[in-house]
């Protein structure tokens, strides 16, 4: 049981890194990235592919971070002229492209089979100790990601990003370089997401195109909205709550007598209803962003 709880803890921490990344884009800057899972995938595949060639995992993380960062910057540039909703659709399309490549380039990515037997970290230890060590490692990384995200959010740069979200024209007229600010925040977020992907692949010991489906992005959106769009602490709170909720509903068939098909439907439905409910009733989330009043609302 301890192992199982540690497992949920690890997942929650991995997701929290992802939520911090998405919050920087959506919550702080107002960039609706529907293709977040692509950055995660780049990180996960980099680690998994290099691992299968016996390259140390830290190299995989670095390669993943560089590739994802570059991809993030490119996507950020693509966003320079688009209204936010079309940019969102474009990111969704790009993520699907990444998934199709992962699915069809089987020589490289393992195709539909994916890449399995990715070695984890702390391989020398016994099972429970190893889970605990993995958990501790990821929590430390999460801590670093949190500090970075908070520094960005609360610094001068963060104020520019919020201004871009609230009033892009004003931001431009105040001579802020809007495009460069967007490109930088996308690159940073993509790097964070790739780290999340690397840990995910190592923990699950597997990565395949099935994990790059849009639902994965949607789950992270739910975390960020529930936590509170724009609030760094909120992103972590939301990630932990939604992970527990989503993973906990795995047990739904142990409590009530439903078919497996129905149970799978219920799990997804719960997430969808929670997100919709928050958007309708408590748009600001559990831990609301504070500085909003300082700027004119749209």
């Amino acid at each position: 049981m301890v192992e199982y709880l540690l497992g949920v803890g690890i997942l929650a921490a991995v997701y929290a890194i992802n939520a911090l990344s998405l919050n920087l884009q959506v919550g702080v800057t107002g960039l609706l990235n529907f293709g977040q899972v692509a950055f995660v995938g780049i990180g996960a595949y980099s680690v998994a592919i290099l691992d299968s060639h016996d390259v140390p995992w830290i190299v995989g993380f670095l390669v993943g971070a560089v590739l994802a960062g570059a991809a993030g910057a490119l996507v950020g540039r693509l966003g320079r002229t688009l209204a936010s909703d079309y940019w969102a659709i474009a990111t969704l399309a790009l993520a699907e492209l990444v998934r199709l490549v992962a699915l069809n380039q089987d020589g490289f990515t393992g195709g539909a089979q994916g890449l399995s037997a990715v070695s984890g970290i702390w391989t020398g230890m016994s099972t429970t100790a190893r889970e605990a060590a993995t958990f501790a490692t990821i929590v430390v990384v999460l801590g670093i990601a949190y500090l970075v995200a908070r520094r960005v959010r609360n610094g001068q740069y963060g104020r520019v990003l919020v201004l871009i979200r609230e009033n892009p024209d004003l931001a431009a007229s105040l001579r802020h370089n809007v495009v460069s600010a967007k490109v930088r925040v996308m690159a940073l977020s993509a790097v964070m997401a790739s780290v999340c992907g690397g840990f995910y692949a190592m923990y699950i010991s597997f990565i395949g195109p099935g994990q790059l489906l849009p639902f994965a992005t949607f789950l992270i959106f739910t975390m960020v909205v529930v936590g509170g769009l724009g609030n760094t602490t909120g992103a972590v709170v939301g990630a932990v709550l939604i992970t527990v909720l989503y993973d906990g509903t795995r047990f739904v068939r142990d409590w009530i007598d439903v078919s497996a098909d129905q149970a799978a439907g219920i799990r997804i439905l719960v997430i969808g209803v929670v997100l919709l409910g928050f958007l309708l009733v408590r748009t600001e989330g559990l831990v609301p962003e504070k500085v909003k009043a300082a700027h004119a609302r749209r």
Partner: peptide
């Protein structure tokens, strides 16, 4: 019908 859910399910069986 997916690999990650299969591994997660196996995890639950092994650890719980």
């Amino acid at each position: 019908g997916t690999a990650d859910a299969a591994i997660q399910a196996a995890k639950k069986l092994v650890s719980v």
